[in-house]
Design a protein around this nucleic acid. Sequence first.
DNA 1: CATGAATGAGATTTCATTCAT
DNA 2: AATGAATGAAATCTCATTCAT
Lengths: 221, 221, 221, 221
Amino acid sequence: MAVRTRGGDAAVPPAPSAIGSAEGSVPRRLLAEATRLFAEKGFDRASVQEIVDAAGVTKGAMYHYFDSKDDLLAQIYARVLRLQMTRLEEIAGQGGPVAERVYEAAADVVVTTIANLDDASIALRSMHQLSAAKQREVRAERRRYHELFRSLITEGQAEGAFTAGVPADIVVDFYFGSVHHLSTWYRADGRLSPEEIGGHYARLLLDALRPDPREPGPLRG
Amino acid sequence: MAVRTRGGDAAVPPAPSAIGSAEGSVPRRLLAEATRLFAEKGFDRASVQEIVDAAGVTKGAMYHYFDSKDDLLAQIYARVLRLQMTRLEEIAGQGGPVAERVYEAAADVVVTTIANLDDASIALRSMHQLSAAKQREVRAERRRYHELFRSLITEGQAEGAFTAGVPADIVVDFYFGSVHHLSTWYRADGRLSPEEIGGHYARLLLDALRPDPREPGPLRG
Amino acid sequence: MAVRTRGGDAAVPPAPSAIGSAEGSVPRRLLAEATRLFAEKGFDRASVQEIVDAAGVTKGAMYHYFDSKDDLLAQIYARVLRLQMTRLEEIAGQGGPVAERVYEAAADVVVTTIANLDDASIALRSMHQLSAAKQREVRAERRRYHELFRSLITEGQAEGAFTAGVPADIVVDFYFGSVHHLSTWYRADGRLSPEEIGGHYARLLLDALRPDPREPGPLRG
Amino acid sequence: MAVRTRGGDAAVPPAPSAIGSAEGSVPRRLLAEATRLFAEKGFDRASVQEIVDAAGVTKGAMYHYFDSKDDLLAQIYARVLRLQMTRLEEIAGQGGPVAERVYEAAADVVVTTIANLDDASIALRSMHQLSAAKQREVRAERRRYHELFRSLITEGQAEGAFTAGVPADIVVDFYFGSVHHLSTWYRADGRLSPEEIGGHYARLLLDALRPDPREPGPLRG
DNA sequence: CATGAATGAGATTTCATTCAT
DNA sequence: AATGAATGAAATCTCATTCAT
């Protein structure tokens, strides 16, 4: 049974000003290297030995902090899901026209995904390697995220700000498919900055949602 | 070196007497079961033993027809890429307004992807397991596919049928991201038929490309 | 990467408490059994499974200490080469007439080879199974050994103690051919003791090198 | 059961002027390629597939002419042993002083070995791969060869032409060790021709056998 | 907290040989 | 006389995990 800090399942203690280590605490380093290696080689091909070598610790240390290799992956997921959920909640909770909030959220998730491209790449390809139970957890969390985003879409459709011609859940899957795929083509040395790509993606989404002029708005009858 | 039929790298001979048979030839059965298992468990987790057991042959037989487990994966890729390229070439080569051709191609790739969902799922998650050389081949083929699609977009932008406000390559990555992700959420028992989903996706794309009324068409000066 | 003790490429730690034990440490036992089996059946025919069974450990343990089956072979070579080089250096470094030093070295290498007949047999037949890189290393080491022996021959030729009618390198290859072949015919229950055989071999060499009375010595002009 | 030509165990029919084949009959080509590959990679590492590919035939053809892979090796041995035995018998049967016959035989076996270096290399390293029964046959044949050579040595010793200070069988093992090892160091582009090497080797042998002046000849009482 | 030796199960691949045609 | 699909056994090697220290 691996050590757990009280009050959560995060195994990562707040690095106590990191005395004696240029790189952060042991579990933090393990997570960082695991993230890098899972993204680079895939979960199955990255061996525990490689991960601990990269983190400069031994296997015993890893099994002290994490229950298993699966656990490493699960915690990587947990962290990124928490991060994205937090950001979306902030944006969704702001005031202002729904179209602006959707634009901001859509652009932000692109920038955040690019900033954590390894996490995105792992999420894309490695979720099936999790145990069934962990997969359910992750899926549930992601569903909550999608639900929140979807509620913004339906809000806009109800107001007539967005077309109602396409089901909101289809719109959400459509958009997050695009976002998740960033990791397969984005290159840091590319022509466009993450912010520019975020702008283009958000604009494509908003334009796709523009109400058709021929289609009567919901309140103008 | 595994057996190869002349005239191509397909290891699948035309099943001589068993046309329509529920079984098919040995290499055909191997490819079918491999596709199913790679999609279900991922490339690394599906063992050669499982595949040959499912196909009802021995490992020796598999290695008679395929060079390696990698080769199995590569041939699955090759088949689906060929299939999709063929369909896109047909549609792109038709006459008619560019918007209609893009709509048709966009809707068709959704339907085709859903019809070969296992292949899509493999393409999404398992390309990184291929050898570097095979990856280059596959990428090159996919690039040709994307290029053809992109040329339709730029054609429409030049005509003023599509907005020029978003780079065509961004549009292509945006759309195919959505398409590739179908395999993560589509369920055969879902509310919408593949054709309906294709229609929605194509409409989202076309609406996103609708020229902004405020932005002047390229030829109306 | 297999465990290596510091300061050398020997994987054999000094058995901590078991000095003189009939068993020895795990890597030591593995090397001993591997030597026996490689000599008996040849490198390719001796399976890792047989070796670890004979040593009473599991395959995992073997791969903990050695990088590969090749590595096992390479370490066996390294040990015997070191041993023979050390002995030759001692003898060559002594004072006394060169003919006596050559006689002693020639007789000693026979006795040492017979005492390590398994190693000799492996060296004879299995070097080609090593990786190209390891082969180069081994060859380089053996060349150094031959060079030292050759330098004794040329020294004798320069002094007129040995005939100059045959090139020294031919003499070396000639003699070590004979020595390496001991493993194909020597039997422990044979008529002659290792020392007697060493004596005969050394005498044959020395007699072959005797200056021809008709050929003038280098200094007697 | 493989085809056998009457009157011997040679599977090689006299090539009937080789119509339609630039390379000789099928079994001949198989033996030639097998010899080359066994010498190059060792018996175990040369696969039957490689051999038949190199010979331009299929496995079925090989198993038509040879009982097994072992049989290939055995026939390679048989051929070279027959060849060397024939030459030695010719030389031994000549008239003339025994020292001259030994010199000629010793030089000839060097030249012949170099001319068939692949065979020599196989003989050196691959005999242990033969079945026990085949090994016995080969050993018996080689013993007959050694016996004949040894009888020349003892003849010379009885005459006082050679020293009697070293047992004749030791002399034979000593010399053939050197000869068998030619394959490990001889290079076609070396400084010395095969004949020169043969001369040096034969001279070394003869000089080693020169009677010691101090030791009384057997007949001079 | 951390080590590292050891396990045991399972992975891919090779290969000599057979046999129906 | 020859083919080539198929077998089945064995090969080397990897790896997540445990446990005594």
